[in-house]
């Protein structure tokens, strides 16, 4: 094996549906042990197809991947044993109690009852649901349901957890709570987490590394910090009262300033480390006895990174009826 730090090694993975639609086009990447890896992309970019191949729901058309040391095409059962999945959809049976359903999940993994029962209790405690274990799942709120699904995905003590849109449709408080459970998992079980999401602040808050996929290809990969820095830095907007004086050249001389654009008394400055640079610019202006009318600092967000690489055009969604129904169902359940 090429890389012993890698828990997932994807090599030239390709999936072609019905001999024409290239959903995933020759992608290769590695994910290291213990990472939280964010997988981003517009709808229909190939995100789900990639995950479905990595979780062995269907085989790739060509190329392959090693997951937890097993080949997804040749040893799918071994892969399934060592991974946990928390699908985007609320898959638990709402007419069962939490306890019953999590034991059912344990049965799917062949976990004997003497191990499954204490483990289920431990996991329900981990997501703070121990008190409602005997209640029916349809009495859970959206956030409880999501935490419950998280616990179910952990029943086989996976080394690698696939989390598909873990906070879809949740309110801000619940979302933050789910995040804290995810970081707790990483810390306590030294688990590797493969996460997809549409909420880019989630990527910022959680992920060690990010890949952006579009049109079946990985367009950018790196740490959130690298990706944001890659956009060319922060923007400082500053205005001075003395509109007839041009101080562009003097600003440009300050270290780390990349570009200055002036329009009247207003300057738009592109720079690295904007927060350290802004005081220096202010110093310069005050030393010259000019008057500041306004100052504004923007740092690039993941949103901008995302739009930079995937473009602003809205995609025609080409999901099937079932997928649409599932998503609506998920959002509806989350809002309960």
């Amino acid at each position: 094996m090429a890389n012993k730090n890698a828990i997932i090694e994807v090599k030239n993975l390709t999936k072609v549906f019905d001999n024409k639609v290239k959903a995933v086009d020759d992608i290769s990447f590695n994910i290291n042990y213990g990472e939280i890896f964010g997988f981003l992309g517009p709808n229909g970019a190939g995100k789900s197809t990639t995950i479905n191949m990595l979780t062995t729901l269907f085989p790739p058309t060509s190329g392959t991947a090693m997951v937890c040391g097993y080949n997804i095409s040749k040893e799918p059962m071994e892969v399934r044993k060592s991974i946990g999945t928390v699908p985007q959809d609320y898959t638990s049976d709402s007419d069962m109690t939490g306890q019953e359903y999590i034991i059912f999940c344990a049965d799917l993994y062949g976990i004997p009852r003497n191990i499954a029962v204490p483990r289920a209790a431990e996991l329900l405690k981990l997501v703070s649901l121990q008190d409602v274990a005997k209640n029916k799942i349809d009495s859970y709120s959206g956030g409880m349901r999501r935490r419950f699904e998280l616990a179910c995905g952990l029943i086989n003590r996976p080394k690698l957890l696939f989390l598909d849109e873990p906070t879809l449709g949740l309110d801000v408080q619940t979302r933050t709570a789910v995040w804290s459970y995810i970081t707790k998992l990483k810390k306590e079980y030294s688990m590797t987490i493969f996460l997809t999401t549409h909420y880019l602040e989630e990527v910022d808050a959680l992920c060690d590394r990010v890949a952006i996929i579009d049109h079946g290809k990985i367009v950018k990969m790196g740490t959130p910090k690298e990706l944001k820095a890659g956009l060319g830095g922060d923007i400082i907007e500053i205005g001075i009262k003395e509109t007839s004086i041009n101080i562009s050249d003097r600003i440009l001389k300050i270290k780390n300033v990349k570009d200055v654009k002036r329009s009247g008394g207003e300057y738009r400055i592109k720079a690295k480390n904007g927060e350290e640079l802004a005081p220096k610019i202010i110093d310069l202006i005050l030393k010259n006895k000019y008057h500041i009318t306004k100052i504004f600092l923007t740092k690039p967000t993941m949103d901008e990174v995302y739009l930079e690489y995937t473009g602003k055009s809205i995609r025609n969604e080409q999901s099937d009826k079932d997928a649409q129904f599932r998503q609506l169902h998920t959002i509806r359940t989350a809002r309960m």
């Binding site: 729901l57 699908p87 079932d322 998920t330």
Partner: peptide
């Protein structure tokens, strides 16, 4: 099961 995504859940479990 397919509509609600449950089928995918079983398909990713180690069951033939």
């Amino acid at each position: 099961d397919r509509r609600l995504g449950y089928l995918n859940k079983i398909l990713s479990a180690p069951i033939p």
